[in-house]
Design a protein around this nucleic acid. Structure first.
Lengths: 251, 251
DNA sequence: GCAAAAGTGTTAACTTTACACCCATGT
DNA sequence: ACATGGGTGTAAAGTTAACACTTTTGC
């Protein structure tokens, strides 16, 4: 997060199809908008969302989803990746633009719309991926049981949850919430939590294996106090070939 | 489209999580962003998109999708509805936010992101719905064969097309492009064009009727030079009950 | 040996696909 | 009477859903 010096900018709030301005000197336009990021993780059988506690006004000491004003020369996607990276140290994370939120009164300092993203981050084998920077201020919270939140952030998370439920039916994104190597039961739990329903174990395995994008590893779980499960990896290449034909998975 | 007077606004370009500003007087933030709208119609067996010819800089006399800077106190959805209404006179049209586009250099006057929407408008029985205001500047263009366009508008339309292909599989939106009363063959053509494939007539009818959200009318087509087709209406209430259980239609 | 989760197959119900001819209407 | 699109049923193939017991491992 780069500090920005305080500066003044002059500008006209002109709709650009008004024809009353001098021909050659188009007015300068400028936007203050933020990029916010709903970060999901999966731990202890629960879907979690990463919240920060704000340490500035407005909404000082409220919980919020991480976000920031976008920098001047920055793509939206890059801004979202930066916010995620600053907070977690992670890169190459599954991320998708969610929605632009722009109620005129959503921000007390003026008209600030926000472009919301959501990200799915892989847990380590011991649990959710730890937060590196800002750790004292960031906390994982159960996604289906949210506290009061700053701005319209509750609305944003709720839309992200709906999007996730929707997406998992036609993109295999369950893997994004698991470690590289995972068992079929772990994967099934992701589907059960996100789709909010129980799934038959035998049918789930048959169907998910039938797509062929899971590579069976010659490895098993370690240190569990019951029969160790075989581990699998997601084979992105095979999926890429599959997805043009359409993919719909409602177990 | 309301004219806006020319004014100057002073503001600070502060990230709001910097802690160097005076406690009680938060800086005023302000955004210039536009709302653009991809308007789809269906006519002569083709999917069309409504383009305008710009009459101001930048991109004067280029073709573009209709759009405008958002007004200060306006919701994003309302701004999109206003743009559509100003151009077509229509209200209560199917409309959905598509995506926020924000490459830093997408607008020559500065950082102007745009929130893109897409809308589906019903054709009249004689063809596509006529454009009322701005008619001289607006034209229906084949959606799969676009001209050069201003800004990043081609990219926007292409994403809208992908979204439409996707949406039609799990929301029954084919109706939104047809008159209130339509024949099953008309509806099938919508699916064939948007999904870009031929569909078996008998199977299509069986499947779409099996959902129960089409009400059979005691009316037939008029003035066709062949056996007149029975007309149907979309019953929104029945669909609303259905959609919680999920809906996937890939004919 | 028991608790805990892994792993495995079959059948019936349902859904999808493929396919061809007669019907109604206007010219 | 012919051209145009409207309207209809069936059987085979494929998919989904329901269901219960044995295996492995750690304690």
């Amino acid at each position: 997060m780069q500090a920005q010096t305080c500066n003044y900018v002059f500008f006209f709030s002109y709709p650009f199809n008004q024809n009353i301005m001098p021909k050659k000197t188009l007015p300068k336009l400028h936007s203050d908008f933020s990029v916010d990021c709903v970060i999901f993780g999966f731990d202890e059988g629960e879907l979690k969302v990463l919240l920060i506690e704000r340490n500035e006004e407005p909404y000082k000491s409220w919980k919020a989803i991480p976000g920031n004003l976008a920098q001047d020369k920055e793509n939206l996607d890059d801004a979202a990746a930066r916010i995620l990276h600053d907070l977690t140290g992670l890169e190459n994370v599954f991320m998708e633009q969610l929605h632009a939120f722009g109620k005129p009164d959503r921000h007390p300092q003026g008209r600030v719309i926000t472009i919301a993203y959501y990200a799915l981050i892989k847990s380590t084998t011991n649990g959710i991926h730890p937060v590196t920077t800002f750790a004292s201020k960031a906390l994982w919270w159960p996604a289906y049981d949210l506290p009061e939140l700053a701005f319209d952030h509750k609305e944003i998370i709720e839309m992200a949850l709906r999007r996730l439920t929707n997406r998992i039916r036609y993109i295999p994104i369950g893997f994004e919430l698991l470690p590289e190597k995972f068992s079929l039961t772990q994967l099934q739990h992701i589907y059960e939590v996100i789709l909010r329903k129980d799934i038959d174990k035998r049918n789930f395995r048959k169907k998910i294996l039938s797509y062929g994008f899971l590579t069976e590893l010659n490895q098993k779980q370690q240190g569990v106090s019951h029969r160790a499960a075989r581990l699998y990896k997601f084979n992105k290449k095979i999926y890429e070939g599959l997805k043009d034909k359409g993919f719909y998975f409602e177990p």
